Amino acid sequence: MGIVWEGVMPAVTTKFNNIDELDLRMFKINIDAQLDAGVHGIVLGGTLGEASTLTDDEKRILTRETVAHVKGKVPVLINIAEQTTKDAIESAKKAEDDGAQALMMLPPMRYKSGDRETVAYFTAVAKSTRLPIMVYNNPVDYKVEVSLEMFEQLLQSCPNIEAVKESTRDVSNVTRIINRFGNRLKIMTGVDTLALESLLMGANGWIAGLVCAFPKETVAIYELQKVGRIEEALKIYRWFLPLLELDINPKLVQNIKLAEVYTGLGTENVRAPRLPLSGKEREHVIQIIENSLKSRPEIPDYKAI
């Protein structure tokens, strides 16, 4: 099972209806918008997907429904975020059975694992599955960093660990990874506000957040920079930055779901304990969204590049 680690892969939000059930109709509306924009993969059950609130059955439904809906146009990935190695191995097996083409994988949840434990955890899961794996390295939010030395061990023993979602928020880490591993470890930038910078430094692609509400702008930035049309990419990126900053915020799920409402690609329904934005916080996010929509740039025909 192969996957090309490049391009824009949205970390899609999970849609809920007014009685807190999966809203597959709205979910598929958003997926169709992503496909129409030309994304290169779909990532389910990440932070934006409210993974920690989803039941096992809901994760499996999302995987199966997405695989059936995209019909092979792009690969479907699902995130593994479990507390035990046993559960992570079981989740990987279910993902493979349900048709996922690859896994995104966080270190163990809740328990702050040490370096040796983290390597052992990733190794055990990788050896249990045929699926390619992208390690989600986000020490800012999840408090465990996968160092270059740890990647060295993982890459030597686990050929199906193929990529990293680079979310350390240190753009120079892109160069460190390339200098250390060359083409062996593909780099998918995972921080919206450092996306273009990371791509220009050599990252292969972008696991994106605001793409959920603005798919065409996101893909356009990637495609334009890829062919060296940097000024055009920069113009869109500079317009986009106030929106992208909504992603590096504890309320990123609520922020992005509110943006999806404004672009017709979602609802504000979140799963408790999350609640929709209110008060001055809501007013601030609405102002950013509305100001951005008023100055929304014209997008070049990036599909013809």
Rank of each mutant, 00 (worst) to 15 (best):
I187E: 14
R130F: 00
V164L: 02
T168V: 01
S157I: 03
P132W: 13
Q153H: 06
V140E: 08
V135G: 10
V146Y: 05
E149M: 02
G190Q: 05
Y136Q: 14
D170V: 02
V174D: 09
K165C: 02
I178V: 12
P159A: 09
A163P: 06
R169A: 04
S147H: 02
N183C: 07
P159W: 09
Q153D: 11
Y121H: 15
V125A: 13
V140F: 01
Q156K: 14
D141E: 10
I187G: 12
E149C: 00
P139C: 03
K143Q: 10
N160E: 15
Q156R: 13
D141N: 11
V146R: 09
N137S: 07
Y142H: 12
D141V: 01
V125H: 11
M188L: 14
L148R: 06
F181Y: 04
K143H: 05
M150D: 04
N138F: 04
A163I: 03
S172Y: 05
V171K: 08
L148G: 05
E145D: 15
E166C: 01
A126G: 12
V171D: 13
S128A: 15
I177Y: 06
V164M: 05
G182N: 13
P139S: 04
G182A: 11
E166G: 01
E152H: 10
Y121C: 08
A124I: 01
V125F: 06
T175E: 15
N173G: 00
V140M: 03
D141M: 03
A126F: 05
N173I: 01
F181W: 04
V191L: 04
I178C: 10
R180D: 06
V144N: 09
M134C: 14
S172Q: 08
K143P: 00
I178S: 11
L154G: 06
R169Q: 05
P132C: 14
V125D: 15
F151Y: 14
G190K: 02
V135R: 11
T168M: 02
S157E: 14
L148S: 10
V171I: 12
Y142Q: 12
F122M: 11
R176Q: 03
N160L: 13
P139E: 07
C158H: 10
I178R: 15
P132I: 13
N160H: 12
L148D: 12
D141L: 03
A126S: 15
E162W: 02
I178E: 13
A124P: 03
S147P: 01
N183V: 05
V140W: 01
E145S: 09
K165Q: 07
V191F: 01
